[in-house]
Design a protein around this nucleic acid. Sequence first.
DNA 1: CTGAAAGCGCTTACAG
DNA 2: CTGAAAGCGCTTACAG
Lengths: 342, 342
Amino acid sequence: MSSSDKTRPRAVTSIDVAERAGVSQSTVSRALSGSETITEATRRRVERAAEELGYQVNARAAGLRRGETGTIAIVVIGREGEGPAAVNPFYYSLLGSTCAAAAERGYEALVSFQAKPDEFFGHYVARRQADGVVVIGTATNRPAWDYFTACAKTAGGMAFWGSPFDDSVWVRSDNRAGGRLAVDRLVRGGAKEIVFVGDPASSQRQFRERYEGYREAMEAAGLTPGEAVVSGGTDRVSQGRNAIGQLVESGAPFDGLFFACDAMALGALEELAARDLSVPDDVGVIGFDGLGSGEFSAPPLTTVEPDFARAGQLLVETALAAGDERPERRVAVHLVERASVR
Amino acid sequence: MSSSDKTRPRAVTSIDVAERAGVSQSTVSRALSGSETITEATRRRVERAAEELGYQVNARAAGLRRGETGTIAIVVIGREGEGPAAVNPFYYSLLGSTCAAAAERGYEALVSFQAKPDEFFGHYVARRQADGVVVIGTATNRPAWDYFTACAKTAGGMAFWGSPFDDSVWVRSDNRAGGRLAVDRLVRGGAKEIVFVGDPASSQRQFRERYEGYREAMEAAGLTPGEAVVSGGTDRVSQGRNAIGQLVESGAPFDGLFFACDAMALGALEELAARDLSVPDDVGVIGFDGLGSGEFSAPPLTTVEPDFARAGQLLVETALAAGDERPERRVAVHLVERASVR
DNA sequence: CTGAAAGCGCTTACAG
DNA sequence: CTGAAAGCGCTTACAG
């Protein structure tokens, strides 16, 4: 018979506020939502009552009535069967700036990490939990992208970064420009035999674009672009490591290395050191992504970084866009100068 | 007069499903929520109708009626005036595992990055947007912690990691055990003159606990614990760098260094290299946090890492706990062996 | 400028 | 086992 057996105390409602202020519920709603049609005196009375009662608008009820959710769902795709600890830090940065971009537009961000097929969920819009959903993460989780690509077909209101498919609503770095930036910088450092490391046929579609940028810049510089070096390995870091072994054993000369992503470059830096090849003196190295880890590698890694803030904005914009609008989908990149190029 | 001038198509409701299945709305609700009191035949009929119509329960309406939100808010506090790009990667890992822990318990995660005083918001529970809120992030943003500590006093349902205050509902690493782990390892590597670097009076309360662990282990090993080395600098990395300068100039001998956090250790590693001090031969180095960047430093950084998954669980548990329950609040730590100790 | 009433889409006593 | 009705807490036409 106790009045509060660990039940939450009943929340204060707009009716309580109305009563205290001596007005109707409608007036409370208008006063608190900033309607123009309310007397300043009334508004103040209502605001004081709300204040005194510690009243906060019930966002859920308001949204239900209004028909908007004010929320955007962000799903981060991980490697199959691995937890959030295995997520590439690049996607954490992207997550952060996407949340910030959502907030900027007045949206809340509902985030989830999804890696296992039996837990895939993308029907946020249908369930009215969100007005749009952005999906980011590793291209290597094929089942996940199959799932979300199918979602996008029936649902709309989705934006992708990292999808292995070209037919979805993706947002990407300006990868060709990035490839050119990297090669030009290597050339300025005196390199002539510049090699691209990474698989242009990778499920990460952006790799091919980076390779194309490499080719363009090589040709523009009067140099001969080579075939991409593709190496095995379970993760990007060991792929980078293995690439060096492969390269050295092939006997092909090289004085500049452009990696399809920072994780590979970081692995390569270790292997280069192990083989007593000096960076940047013997060979210049540039990565792609702007990973924080590159600040502490030996030497610190020069890299091509997308404008994360802009990436977040574009992702949110795209997810929220009504069908016909066509938001820009390429994110500008810039070179982060550290110390792995002369 | 067009029927769909860029208005979202009206969502399918449970009434539509009821109609199609030839049952009442109540039955649809029961069938889809897995109520026991429904005939298998009826349930199947309803499920098929829902399927055909592409119906998804409106989570907001259901929650409103049920009085639960099924959501937990996670706020990440950043350095005053800086964006998500400046957030310590440690907190990204913690964010990831907290999201995962929420999902494990069937909760959605509403995340926001907050750094500026005019955008602080913590009334998620009062606004019925969440059933609890976990706050994580840098202790250096004092106004933010003042704000959320005040929130916690009136609101309940909150859990903190990183708060500079002791009186809030915090969850923390088992820092003393971590300190002991680090010192013991350094001793095993042959070090005798082991120095603690970091400010025990820092707003980051965990630093003091780590220092205490250091003292305990030193004494237990029959060694003399020294005063902590406190150095200036705008961020942890430069504090670490400066600590080395300070230490070397002081002339005090040292052959083992335990840093209050990895960011400081990483800065120190650079400075040590610049001064031709070899790690781990001249001096062993151990950090705290388990930062991913430590994998790529020269040498890779040995560090004390909390059990992130457990940290997330405890945070969620604490935020969701009804007043009287007292969830465990210490997270176990372990040593990640890399190469900065002999 | 303000109020009474309807309704957003569910779930859950209450009947039968 | 199923249905009719009420109600979660708002906002917004519709009146006045």
